[in-house]
Simulated assay, not measured.
Amino acid sequence: MTVPEAAPEVESDDATLAARVRDGDVRAYEQLVVRYQGQMFRLASRILADRAEAEDIVQEVFLTAWRRIGQLQDDGAFAGWLYRMTTNRCLNLLRSRQLPADVDPDATASPRTETQPEQAVQVSSQLEALTVALQQLTPEQRACWLLREVHGRSYEEIGEIVGANATAVRGRIARARAQLAEVMKPWR
């Protein structure tokens, strides 16, 4: 007797998966976690400049998402909801800190191995300078800049995530870009 093979899992959109999660489907939730955990971790680690805290925040965000999926009004807005929770938790943590962090979240990342050693040193130095420059921004500017430049979110989405209007978001990003451009001048 042959055992029928399991049907291959079809990639579903966020709205379908979120609706299934609301109905208690753990596998659908796992798919959403796999889809977004890397993005949320990169965002949190760059905002916080602390890998361990970023891991904790992301774990809390996904636990909260599981518990509160019923509060999500639009299943298609799942990604924005995660970005908002991640950003808000990071900003709240930063506000509670006494001293700014000076830890490089990408300390374990290395430049591509096929580059020349001199070029690898220069790229590494540029990344280190950018990390330091990002830490000099206000937490709100840093979050807006990262959501726009690294995660490609629209001004309106960023506004919803950080609780500001699109004009305020544009201003924060403009100030962040100006400050980063000034600090990164030597690298041009």
Rank of each mutant, 00 (worst) to 15 (best):
Ala52Cys: 02
Leu82Lys: 02
Ile173Cys: 12
Gln179Asn: 14
Ala181Pro: 07
Glu9Phe: 12
Gln126Leu: 12
Trp81Gly: 03
Gln59Met: 09
Arg20Pro: 00
Arg68Gly: 04
Leu48Thr: 11
Ser154Arg: 05
Glu182Thr: 13
Leu43Trp: 01
Arg51Tyr: 00
Ala19Glu: 14
Arg95Tyr: 11
Tyr155Gly: 06
Thr131Tyr: 04
Glu182His: 15
Pro100Gln: 04
Arg42Pro: 00
Gly152Cys: 13
Glu5Asn: 13
Val183Gln: 15
Thr115Ile: 12
Val58Trp: 05
Ala7Asn: 14
Leu17Glu: 09
Ala18Ser: 10
Pro100Ser: 02
Glu118Thr: 09
Thr86Asp: 07
Thr16Lys: 10
Thr167Ile: 13
Ser12Tyr: 11
Arg46Ala: 02
Glu5Phe: 14
Ser12Met: 14
Ser110Gln: 14
Gln136Glu: 09
Ala15Asn: 06
Glu5Arg: 15
Ala129Gln: 05
Met184Asp: 15
Val123Tyr: 08
Ala79Ser: 12
Leu48Asn: 02
Gln179Gly: 11
Met40Glu: 02
Leu134Cys: 03
Val162Lys: 00
Phe62Leu: 12
Ala54His: 04
Met1Trp: 13
Val61Thr: 08
Ser110Thr: 12
Val183Pro: 02
Ala129His: 07
Thr138Pro: 08
Gln98Thr: 12
Arg95Thr: 03
Val3Ser: 15
Arg68Phe: 00
Met1Asn: 10
Pro100Ile: 05
Ala133Met: 11
Glu156Val: 14
Val33Asp: 06
Ser12Cys: 12
Ser12Phe: 10
Gly163Leu: 09
Asp106Ser: 07
Gln39Asn: 09
Arg84Cys: 01
Pro186Asn: 15
Ala129Glu: 12
Val169Gln: 08
Pro186Ser: 14
Ser45Thr: 02
Tyr29Pro: 02
Arg27Trp: 01
Glu157Val: 01
Glu53Tyr: 02
Ser96Asn: 13
Leu17Gln: 08
Ile158Glu: 00
Ile57Gln: 01
Val123Met: 12
Glu55Ala: 11
Val26Asp: 09
Gly171Phe: 08
Ala18Phe: 04
Leu48His: 00
Ser45Asp: 02
Ala107Arg: 11
Ala109Thr: 06
Ile69His: 03
Ala166Gln: 11
Leu146Lys: 02
Ala52Ile: 09
Ala79Thr: 05
Asp14Thr: 03
Val3Trp: 13
Gln141Met: 11
Ser96Glu: 12
Lys185Met: 15
Leu43Tyr: 04
Asp25Phe: 01
Gln39Leu: 09
Gln59Val: 11
Ala168Ile: 03
Gln119Arg: 09
Phe62Tyr: 03
Leu147Thr: 00
Ala181Val: 11
